[in-house]
Amino acid sequence: MKLPSFDYAAPSTLQEAVSLLGAHAGSALAIAGGQSLLPMLAYRLVAPSLLIDLRRVPGLDAISVTDEGVCLGSKVRWCDVESDARLRTAHPLLAQAVTHVGHSSIRNRGTVGGSLAHADPAAELPGIALTCDAQIAVAGALCPRTIRAEDFFLGPMTTALASDELIVELRFPAWPAARRWAFEELARQRGAFAIAGLALYYDLRDAAAANVHIGVFGAGPRPQRITQAEAALNGRVIDEQAIAAAARTASATVEAIDDVNASAAYRRSLVGTLLERALTRAAQG
């Protein structure tokens, strides 16, 4: 499992990185932490002519917390998210989800941009980005653009990123302090790929749930929102009855795949269970 041959460049500006990508469009790949890309190279599932290492590119490794929300530079590593105490209140859902990514030595190198670009259907961050209406800022040969998470993840390992574009930043909308939320995931062991995971939040208006967001990853070919369950919960008090109904809806409507880890039927049932548990936990505050 030796890597295929490729050229290597470590440009020192974003501009340079983007123009290198453009010049080798289709055959160059960007690398940051490499925690998803190197296994792909080892199995020779990708064979780029050029790897563009972003390690010298400045300004992509900041975590900013403002009234607008949380921004993660594309080179922010999982360990940076974990150790940033601000995020525990500024975006507790994100902070919690990141602890489920791989193992600690993976989290010491793996990055936000890498995870989004890799778009593994079982990965946590794409699921969180979709759940939270996050936006992905990208730089390219033409002009910078922002892609909504719901438009970004197209399928397994497939995104809306053009071959000459680089992820610059992931932007989460502001997180109200009183927001209710929960994160649930089932993997066969710590660090293994999730068979399914679920993130949710809602705000309370007059004791009823509002702005309900439910996102699921691992169950289908890409992260997905469980919109019918969201709609059923909006405006309702989250009680046992509401939870049970939402769980049934989630099981019935989630897009689930059969693979070596589990059947689609199992995943459908699991998503219902995860939703029930997440709602119960969130309701407890």
């Binding site: 290597y8 490499g34 190197l38 030595s105 993976i106 190198r109």
Partner: peptide, 11 residues
Amino acid sequence: AVRSCLVLAVQ
């Protein structure tokens, strides 16, 4: 701690 199989020497 990092996995040295997931780092290129040049990195």
